[in-house]
Design a protein around this nucleic acid. Structure first.
Lengths: 361, 361
DNA sequence: AATTATTTGTGCGTATGTATC
DNA sequence: AGATACATACGCACAAATAAT
């Protein structure tokens, strides 16, 4: 005997009927009374079956009129698989590349991409997370907002993980959440950048770092490591920290400082990223200081402006589009439960261009 | 008397109970038998109420165990409002700006953004549309793929419109679909660009245009209009057409042509966009031809590369982030049924930089 | 314009099956 | 093994919306 419940059998018969008769949107199906006779079950059972199908998006009912086909595919609104992607910015810098990489891979697998950007604002991150969680998410890729701080939205991330929705962090991860991540080796990157300046004969090396994300701290750590290894001086006055909020203000400080005073402080600069490096160079140029003739600069990310800006920047590259593709591929593995945890670091690579000059004594 | 159905009353009592007792995920609620006594209704009515609440995402049931709180907010997966955005590219050029503008405005209203890119491929457009339509879309913004051709996905767009989901095209719109759009006045843009070269004394003006989208055709039309008005020669050999697929090939043609021959053809170039203009200039530079000394160039879009590239491009600006914000605002109006149709054109603006030289006789 | 038949919606009672503790 | 909880299933009655007469 068939151990299927009767309402299940009725459901299947109704669906097969829709397909056999090739019924379209708004076409009527048989009445409940008809089906009672036809399937020899009670009205209750028929209604139970129809209720399910309404819920699944196959049918809709109208009192006094009848029951009609809604979506002949049985696809309910909200049935589509989608993956959330949250980054700090969309339009700036290296993010378009990363996002494009994710979209490319994710759409290959039939997912749509839900995209939100936080502008590096914790409240916005919470708002986007809340919005997205009300959608049917299959997985989530997050570039953390202000990753040095313990995450304010831990409750939401925990809720996602509790529901079995995998979360993958890129670029950095919050200290207080245990999840998968794909990051670059920022410490090594900072080390390589600084080491290159040292190898080019620079003895006094300044640093400009971002205070409120993990990359800034990692690159700073690598910078310290290289200086310590070479027995070069590490001094607070050579290190400038900025945050999302104080960026402009901090850069303004570099206006109208005499070349002598600058050279006293240091001849080489390790700068948090290509964007800041470009702004720094612009400020210097305005003050009559030339890069790389007067000061040398190494920055990070190998963004397009590193190649196309006023000065061709020597910079530490890490994957952008590939990072996106890799993140998407990893998330797909996590969603398929093939693996439960992914921790991956990309190796940084030095790209030598024209923002560093060799010092000879 | 209260005319609400009893099951509705029971539903509300259960919900208020969850809120009053501040019940969380996995907390049990009263059993069906308990509630029969408590609310003085039949078991059927209780079950009907619970079935509804399960469906809405408030509760889940487990046979033999009980009924438990699922989401204390009552939000079902797929309840979140989202807006689809389909563009040809995400990472290139002016699109990050536009997308960012849309995201900004849309998230203010509590929507999430579903993003897909077609790489100017009709099949990919169809795939993305299908994916998105299975999600719960409140509205859709589309930058058309190959907009000169009649749209291959008309059936899907029609289906969306039939379901009352507004569709807004940006940049261009398909000829065979009647929907809202926000575009720039491409004909005027082409006219202004060409007119500027004429005003600077150029008599023989070449054009490089994109064949497979409406913008290319519009700009070409404006180019013709300006030449005709000034009684200047219009010749096929001065006009180069390319498509997404033949872009590289066509640009390759400009390699190694002697300056004399080039000048014979024309001294001014109207070029489809800043990106192509930049590639063109690069090819010229490789061949020893200088811009603007030897040849003058006017292009379109005022992308960031127009300002930051090797040659500062004189270009026709149109709004980018503002276009995104405006598109989002318009879609919000369409979704609220405040209006049913929006047709808007942005005025182009000439940005004079350094890629055109004045010819004196 | 009122009536009637049809169709879905609400609601109760009862019985039996099955999973969990 | 027994109590408890939800699941399936039948039957009945009346209400409300719709369409046709």
């Amino acid at each position: 005997m068939d151990n299927k419940p009767k309402y299940q059998v009725v459901k299947e018969k109704i669906i097969s009927d829709i397909k056999v008769k090739d019924l379209k949107y708004n076409d009527p199906i048989r009445s409940e009374l008809d089906m009672m006779d036809l399937f020899k079950v009670s009205r209750h059972t028929i209604r139970r079956a129809i209720a399910d199908l309404v819920n699944e998006g196959w049918l809709y009912r109208q009192q006094g009129k009848g029951t009609f086909v809604d979506n002949p595919e049985g696809l309910k609104n909200g049935t589509g698989k989608s993956v959330g992607v949250i980054t700090t910015y969309i339009n700036d810098y290296i993010f378009p590349e990363i996002i494009s990489g994710i979209e490319h891979r994710i759409s290959e697998e039939g997912y749509s991409m839900l995209l939100g950007n936080t502008n590096n604002d914790i409240a916005k991150e919470r708002q986007i997370l809340t919005n997205m969680m009300n959608s049917k998410l299959s997985g989530l890729i997050v570039e953390p907002t202000k990753s040095v701080f313990p995450n304010h939205n831990k409750d939401l991330y925990d809720q996602l993980l509790a529901k079995g929705i995998p979360v993958l962090f890129i670029h950095a991860c919050y200290g207080n959440i245990q999840t998968s991540f794909i990051i670059e080796d920022d410490i090594k990157a900072g080390y390589i950048a600084t080491k290159y300046l040292i190898d080019q004969g620079h003895k006094f090396i300044c640093g400009i770092f971002k205070q409120d994300d993990m990359q800034g701290h990692g690159r700073y750590e690598g910078y310290l490591k290289a200086l310590r290894e070479a027995d070069l001086p590490i001094d607070d006055f050579r290190i400038v920290w900025y945050t999302t909020e104080t960026k402009k203000l901090v850069l303004e400080q570099f206006k109208n400082i005499s070349l002598e005073k600058l050279k006293e402080q240091g001849t080489g600069y390790v700068i948090y990223n290509d964007q800041i490096a470009n702004s720094f160079i612009q400020k210097m140029t305005e003050g009559g200081v030339s890069i790389p003739e007067d000061l040398s600069v190494v920055s990070f990310d190998n963004a397009s402006i590193a190649k196309n800006g006023p000065v061709q920047l020597t910079t530490i590259a890490h994957p952008k589009r590939e990072l996106g593709v890799e993140a998407a591929s990893s998330l797909i593995k996590l969603m398929s439960k093939e693996v439960t945890m992914i921790k991956k670091k990309f190796e940084p690579e030095l790209i030598i261009r024209n923002s560093v000059s060799k010092l000879v004594e």
